[in-house]
Simulated assay, not measured.
Amino acid sequence: MEIDYINGPRTDKIFGMSKYQMEIFKRIDGVEWNFIEYDSLLKIMESKYSSIFSSKPKNEEESLGMFPALDKTESFSQSKIFKGMIDTAWKTCMYIDTYRYRQTVKKSIKKDNVKHLTYQELAYLLKYVEMDKTIVTCHDIIPWAYDNDRSKLWKDIMTGLRNADRIITISEFSKNELVKYLNYPADRIHIVKDAVDHDVYYKKRDKTLLQRFNIPLEGKFVLYVGSETPRQNLDLLLKAFARLKKRVPDVKLLKIGDPQSFGAREKLLSMIRDLGLEKDVIFVGYVAEEDLPKWYNASDLLVYPCRYAGFGLPPLEAMACGTPVITANTTSLPEVVGDAGVMVDPDDDATLEDEMYKILTDESLREELMKKGLERVQLFQWDDAAKETLRVYEEVDSI
């Protein structure tokens, strides 16, 4: 059996969807692969002009939480005109990329192969390229279901998902969303859950990594791993953290991950200044896969207050490292955490503050959550995910 592995743009960063595909791919044996990828114009432009378009901190001081005062006058890079220009340029590159990739896929697929489109945004191809034996991995439909995105691209993506012979998704919640918004047959949706590599993510509690950032090892550390898009609900975390500081003065918040949303970093920095947390929030940026477990192990607590998640990998990775978890009680997150973590209303910063305080100050509670988390993560194995994916390949190959 040969798979047309329709994997989209090449990337050297590993997170979220790319991590999922990488972990499963390297564990599947007995198939041949026809990789169909391309060099994204959008990624090239973002890389070339990152100093202009990025919302990353401008210097080392900002990355350590020491922020300059806000200018009273709006800079051009923060203006609506500039943001409109960037939005137009981004959309232009995106549509050029989608057209280019359509042509690449048409030329590269093989008639008898199973075609695996490895994440949902590639589903638009099934509207424009004639294919059979098709599988789409759909982690979520957040833009459609949560952001109410009714752009042409997302209409094409939803049409393409309906055209797929099978859909792989990562949670019961995401499966239910696909049935709800697509009216797609539930028996053609296969759940292949996210997991962790237990040879990489394991308990090794050690804070010495923080010395690389000149961070004093004394005190407590709350960790957040993820983007800065509005649904991630960092507003709630910052409000709760500001209240927590009054009760636990030596606590710091570590923030890992790129913004992944234009203008998000500026809004976040502004809120940090307003709350007086300039010296207490530490921006780490993108962290390579091999270093990420060290940050989990160096932290006393992970908080993941996301309002809408197709799965929620950071809580799982944190539990694998023995780090207690607080997350939102919404969407897929209860499926991931079960009774091994603390779940809170994503609108209740007072309760979030109380739960953070309890975990940071109650050693027995922290040990209990650590034990439950380490047991819970054993249910999530990449080998199981690979076997289930192979079964879907074999099912579609027999169509």
Rank of each mutant, 00 (worst) to 15 (best):
A186K: 15
R307S: 12
F262V: 05
N297P: 11
K19R: 15
K110Q: 14
L182I: 02
D132W: 00
L122T: 04
G312C: 03
E289Y: 09
F76I: 14
P259T: 11
L210N: 07
N163Y: 07
L234E: 08
V337E: 02
Y101S: 05
K91G: 01
D383V: 05
S18D: 11
D206A: 01
I282Q: 07
N176T: 08
L182M: 07
G310Y: 07
E355H: 05
T118Q: 01
A288S: 15
F82Q: 01
D300V: 03
T104G: 00
Y124H: 04
L217H: 02
Q103V: 10
L125Y: 03
V200S: 02
A309L: 03
Q103F: 00
G226E: 13
T169W: 01
D140F: 02
I359R: 10
V222T: 12
K110D: 05
E394V: 06
K372S: 09
D197G: 06
F241Q: 07
V192F: 00
D349M: 01
V225L: 11
Y99A: 12
K239A: 07
K279H: 15
V248T: 12
F262M: 09
N176I: 02
A164V: 02
G16L: 02
E335G: 06
D149E: 10
V287I: 13
F15L: 13
S47M: 13
L379I: 00
K106M: 12
K127Y: 08
Y201P: 06
K80F: 10
K371A: 15
I168Y: 01
K111Y: 07
L292Y: 12
Y5V: 03
I272E: 10
S79P: 04
E289S: 13
W382A: 05
D347A: 10
D300N: 12
A298M: 11
L301M: 11
K294G: 12
F25W: 02
H198A: 11
A123N: 08
Q260E: 11
S75R: 09
F76C: 03
F15I: 09
K358D: 15
R247T: 12
S332E: 06
K107C: 02
A385P: 03
K48A: 14
Y286G: 07
V248M: 03
G338Y: 04
A69L: 14
N329P: 03
S50A: 15
K245I: 09
V196P: 01
A328P: 04
E32P: 00
Q378F: 04
T389C: 06
T92P: 04
K58F: 14
S79F: 05
P230T: 05
K110M: 08
D347V: 03
V392G: 09
Y393C: 06
I135G: 09
F283E: 13
G219D: 09
K204E: 14
I191W: 08
N113T: 05
K193L: 02
N176S: 14
K358P: 00
F82D: 10
A318P: 05
Q78W: 00
M94C: 00
K58T: 13
N176H: 09
V287A: 06
L360M: 13
E375S: 10
Y308N: 06
F82N: 06
G65Y: 03
A320H: 09
K220C: 04
L269S: 04
K115Q: 05
E317M: 04
K175P: 08
Y38A: 04
S50T: 10
